[in-house]
Nucleic acid binder design. Structure first.
Length: 420
DNA sequence: AGTCATGATTACTT
DNA sequence: AAGTAATCATGACT
């Protein structure tokens, strides 16, 4: 500002010296220089006053002259637009992945059609449809964001241009300058866009690695997820084969807890597959865990019993002791409630009851085996016996639990699931 | 670095 | 198509 003031002063002194209007000019300049210190309304009024001033055209032409002279430096800074190699790379990738391409008719739809049509590609079309769904989601987000940026950029550009146009009445602004300004704005916005493109690329890469790469990177499930899965496993020990729906539900249940990654049906299947085989291979090793989860479900069951009893005998003064006092809002308490009622002898014929009885029986059997000192002859290896696990190594029919038959596993068995 | 636990994949069976 | 058994690969822990 000081430099500018000096220039102004010198202009006034040199070009217009000797005229009787010198004091007048000084006054005008002073007004111009202080215009930014004033409130908007004041400034607006003063600007208008200056615009109508009789000296304005002369001053304006002087400014134009000066501008012409200093314009060279600006022109020197005139830079062309080198296509950013990184941006090009991002663009190419997004195009290749079908994110940036044509909205619908392009890559993804074609891929979908190809996958659906050809029988050969049906090997894992479910996963691919899932993949495509997620990709579409990403593409949608990307496009709406891009559009938003575009709109904001245009709005801002027109705003700035209006501003400049308005200012061009008081100071000389060449079209080149406006062009340059627009260029700057666009560059700023495109750098923002690049960030969007970058994060989109990242998302696509993650998606790709998750779905299409040969071997998905191993991630450990969250504690809550394993908790939930284990709970199901040990409360269905006699038949640890969750149905499709059950798997789906477990996956959902595991995903709503705070875990970095959503579990899917396949993950649940893998988990149960691994769990079954590893449990069977070395039951002793899982004994502690089994006890833990059985106890956990037993607590739930006890609470449910309390709830059921309290409910069914609400009008009767004879309340069984069952010393547990607990919340009614336990997880699963609904299921437990029904099944316990059915065990209680009440004739509830809910669709869920049958399914839950077995899990209840599993839990209760375990509790009984513990409290009754059932593990005498088996040594300390098999406190929690293998229920439906038959000697052949299969779980087989759950409805005929063989009572405490230990498979060939000895106490000192080493688990053979080692490699490398 | 070594070890263990565990998620994921593969080949095979039912 | 779902399950099993074996195996691979890696995260976490020592």
């Amino acid at each position: 500002m000081d430099d500018q003031a000096r220039i102004m002063q010198s202009i006034a002194g040199v070009s217009l010296a000797g005229h009787s209007v010198q004091g007048d000019i000084g006054d005008i300049l002073h007004q111009i220089m202080t215009i930014t210190d004033q409130s908007l309304d004041e400034a607006q009024a003063k600007k208008h006053g200056l615009n109508c001033h009789r000296m304005k055209p002369a001053l304006f032409s002087v400014l134009c002259e000066i501008k012409e002279k200093t314009g060279l430096s600006i022109r020197g800074a005139q830079e062309e637009d080198p296509p950013d190699p990184q941006l090009m790379r991002l663009d190419n990738m997004l195009l290749a992945e079908g994110v940036a391409g044509p909205e619908k008719g392009g890559g993804s739809a074609a891929a979908a059609a190809a996958a659906a049509a050809s029988g050969g590609a049906a090997d894992n079309s479910i996963e691919h449809s899932d993949y495509r769904a997620k990709l579409t989601q990403i593409r949608q987000i990307y496009h709406t964001e891009l559009e938003k940026y575009e709109q904001a950029c245009n709005e801002f550009t027109t705003h700035v241009m209006n501003l400049l146009r308005e200012q061009s009445r008081t100071r000389p602004i060449s079209p080149k300058e406006i062009e340059r300004m627009v260029g700057i704005i666009h560059r700023k916005f495109s750098s923002i866009q690049m960030q969007l493109k970058q994060s989109t690329c990242e998302a696509v890469m993650i998606l790709r690695s998750r779905f299409l790469d040969a071997r998905r990177k191993r991630r450990n499930f969250s504690k809550q997820a394993t908790e939930i899965l284990n709970e199901y496993f040990y409360s269905h020990l006699s038949n640890p084969y969750p149905s499709e729906e059950a798997k789906e539900e477990l996956a959902k249940k595991c995903s709503i807890t705070v875990s970095q990654v959503d579990l899917e049906h396949r993950d649940v299947s893998n988990w149960f597959g691994n769990k079954r085989i590893r449990y069977k291979k070395n039951i002793g090793k899982f004994q502690e865990e089994a006890n833990l989860y059985a106890a956990k479900t037993a607590v739930n069951a006890a609470h449910a019993v309390a709830a059921a009893v309290q409910n069914s005998q609400a009008n009767s003064p004879t309340t069984p002791n069952s010393g547990s006092s607990g919340s009614f809002n336990l997880p699963n308490s609904g299921d437990m409630f029904l099944s316990m009622q059915s065990l209680n002898g009440d004739s509830y014929q809910g669709a869920q009851v049958g399914a839950n009885v077995q899990s209840q029986v599993d839990t209760l059997r375990h509790v009984i085996s513990q409290t009754a000192g059932y593990n005498d002859a088996l040594g300390d290896n098999l406190m929690y016996s293998s229920h439906g696990l038959n000697a052949n190594g299969g779980w087989q029919d759950a409805t005929t639990p063989s009572s405490a038959i230990s498979p060939t596993e000895g106490p000192g068995s080493v688990h053979s699931d080692t490699s490398n």
